[in-house]
Design a protein around this nucleic acid. Structure first.
Lengths: 227, 227
DNA sequence: AATAAAGGTTAACGGAAGGTTAATGTTCGA
DNA sequence: TCGAACATTAACCTTCCGTTAACCTTTATT
């Protein structure tokens, strides 16, 4: 059995040390970093099977590190470690694409189970946030639109908007909903901005003729996938 | 709109709390249980529109709880929540009659859409705002009139008026009602404007010969669907 | 039957919303 | 600090849509 490699980011020397020992005892290989900024430099894609990141760090917080890691390696599983049980933290973690989170103080057995469950999944990221659009596959977490003629990377806004359209596929996606959830404001400028992104998505989706992104004047848009 | 009641079984205090807050924010009423065994005792048929059950629980697992719930109330939709995305789990869940499966990590918006989709199915609210007019299907939300010879798209006013006529199908739809609710004013000009829209609707509905939109002089209109 | 009132139909107008591309800020990492 | 990536703003054009006008037909009234 292959030894799994864990990237551990934890500023607390004592706790981090204990955790490392425990994981090594359980047959993991551990790379332990204590500082957020240097951690990112030392992280190398392909050398890690799973990341455990403390959220509360003195230098650079765990979420920022997570974003940086995601950029280098979109598929590596992320687990957040936090003493806080603040709602916004958990939601924020999941929105980045966290695979799980663990609250301190925690039961080592439970943690181990969670880690094993994640690793067992293998590289297969769960199909949440993955949408099939005819010959396209849109993966929200990595903002990738995989088409028959190669993949495209979407910008954050493009991805947000496309996701919303996918969630309402073949139905009306109200303009207001997008402005509310993505732009957080509904005025002349945000509306025009949204129009620009709709045009970009149209261009991106153009190769698949079964897809149609039509406007419903005064109400919103409809992403239609023809049979 | 009726508030939906969700029965939530999740042992993780933090995660459960977050989920409850989120669902309550989205206008659901939540009954949150943390223990499988006691959850079953506290579950009461008829008080719940949908169940969200974590699969991995310390005491009694989510599947057993599901079976118990199904015994009491065979029709309530079940959604399983799991960190694992193992095939056997998914299959087992569906064999019990799960309506959907949500794997952690999940996107809150995706989850929300799944829940809404399930509730829509059960609550037969799906044909709310959808009318069958002979060979035509009129969908108010998208302002689409689906005919045998392709769809037509209606303007907001046309859709409003057609909806009003559909709600009074085969009966009199008083002129005044339309002017009051759609135009919000009853004068010479709004009356003439309404006449124009009636003419447009007639042209749109023309292909279906069983449909007749007749005027009742001095009173209003009648949309008749012949037998 | 004559007349007035209501309705039918079509076309045209003008304002608003949307489409599209380019330019301009802004942010963030190298 | 320079440049790349990205969102926003601008500019210009097209489409949509409710209203109004014009002219015609039907219905009710006397």
């Amino acid at each position: 059995m292959k030894r799994f490699r864990v990237f551990l980011l934890e500023d607390d020397i004592n706790f981090g040390g204990v955790l490392r020992s425990y994981l090594e005892m359980k047959e993991f290989t551990v790379q332990w970093e204590t500082d957020g900024a240097t951690a990112l430099e030392r992280f190398h894609a392909g050398e890690t099977d799973l990341c455990i990141l403390d959220v509360m760090l003195p230098n650079m917080d765990g979420f920022s590190v997570a974003v940086g890691i995601r950029k280098q390696c979109p598929s590596v599983p992320l687990v957040f470690l936090t003493a806080r049980s603040l709602k916004e933290d958990v939601l924020r973690g999941y929105s980045i694409g966290a695979d799980d989170y663990i609250c301190k103080p925690f039961d080592t057995e439970v943690m181990l189970m969670k880690l094993r469950a994640i690793l067992r999944r293998g590289g297969e990221t769960s199909d949440e946030g993955r949408f099939q659009l005819g010959s396209f596959t849109f993966e929200f977490a990595t903002r990738t639109l995989q088409g028959s003629a190669g993949p495209s990377r979407l910008s954050p806004r493009e991805a947000d908007l496309l996701k919303l359209l996918c969630l309402h596929i073949n139905e009306l996606m109200p303009r207001e909903l997008a402005l509310q959830t993505i732009w957080r404001e509904d005025n002349y400028f945000t509306r025009r901005s949204m129009d620009v992104f709709i045009a970009r998505l149209r261009k991106l989706l153009e190769p698949e003729t079964r897809l149609e992104l039509i406007s419903v004047h005064g109400s919103g848009y409809r992403l239609i996938l023809h049979g």
